[in-house]
Amino acid sequence: MTTVEISYVGGPTAVVSLGGVRLLTDPTFDAPGEYPIGSRALVKTTGPALAAADLGPVDAVLLSHDQHPDNLDAAGRAYLAGVPLVLSTASAHDRLGAPVRALPAWESVELGGVRVTAVPALHGPEGSEPLVGEVTGFVLSGEGLPKVYVSGDNASLDRVREIADRAGPFDVALLFAGAARTPLVPDATLTLTSEQAAEAAAILGARHVVPLHFEHWGHFTQDGPTLTKAFAEAGLTDRLHLMAPGESVRL
């Protein structure tokens, strides 16, 4: 089977190379600082390991959502103007226009020999979508290729179970973790906790897990060490690949 290569830029941003196709997740290239969102601000603590200009060409961007600056920042928005295709939500298409293409859940597009399928995601507890907005995840598949799940900012294990039932098992899962918390939804996390990430790995049957979006922002309440501990307690240490920004892994 062909391998998949993942290069970690920082935050939710990574280059996924699969079957000769290069895909970029949630582009964030701004420097550390405070980034307003409504009456609040999100605090970025670390900049990207690679600048947008250093990435080389990509075939498409997989944008989980556009409404939060920790998933699409000012430099990321500028970057979108130079890519051939952005796959995202209907809301993102309405707000951003071209080159964003709305990809509803369980619909697919073919990019070379890679099929990109949008899958459900929920950015918080049940009922939170009117507050946090629409998000999506993605499944990458193709003849002779590893099957890859990109969670986006999903906090729902029920959505993970649905995806596993319809599309699993997976070779690689890119799980957005960090147990994000903000005053917008004060009593629940907006992304997977470390324990939920380990449970998601088991549900998905994922042979390899690469965490994304668990560091570099002040609203994350868990981090790399808690992921390491949770996967160890679940007996899944051999599946976890924690990368430093700028590193790549071939799986």
Score class of each variant (00 low, 15 high):
137 G>A: 01
189 T>Q: 08
147 K>T: 14
60 A>Q: 12
97 G>A: 02
106 W>A: 01
94 D>P: 00
24 L>K: 00
5 E>I: 01
243 M>A: 11
95 R>G: 04
205 G>N: 08
128 S>W: 03
193 T>S: 15
58 V>P: 07
42 L>W: 14
118 A>D: 02
5 E>S: 15
106 W>V: 03
101 R>W: 06
111 L>M: 04
134 E>Y: 06
69 P>T: 02
12 P>A: 14
154 N>I: 04
107 E>A: 02
221 T>K: 07
203 I>Q: 13
204 L>R: 05
60 A>G: 13
181 R>W: 09
42 L>E: 10
176 F>V: 00
111 L>G: 10
122 L>H: 07
22 R>Y: 05
73 D>S: 10
133 G>K: 01
100 V>D: 10
199 E>N: 06
117 T>D: 00
222 Q>L: 06
60 A>R: 08
209 V>R: 00
39 S>P: 03
217 W>H: 01
85 L>E: 03
131 L>I: 14
188 A>W: 11
115 R>N: 08
81 A>H: 10
37 I>H: 14
82 G>Q: 09
206 A>M: 05
218 G>K: 03
90 A>T: 14
204 L>A: 03
173 A>L: 00
251 L>E: 05
65 H>D: 15
215 E>F: 12
204 L>E: 04
136 T>N: 02
237 T>A: 15
236 L>R: 12
156 S>I: 09
1 M>Q: 11
202 A>M: 11
19 G>V: 11
182 T>Q: 00
122 L>I: 10
192 L>V: 04
82 G>F: 05
22 R>N: 07
7 S>E: 14
1 M>T: 13
30 D>I: 05
29 F>W: 07
47 G>E: 05
8 Y>H: 12
248 S>R: 15
123 H>Y: 14
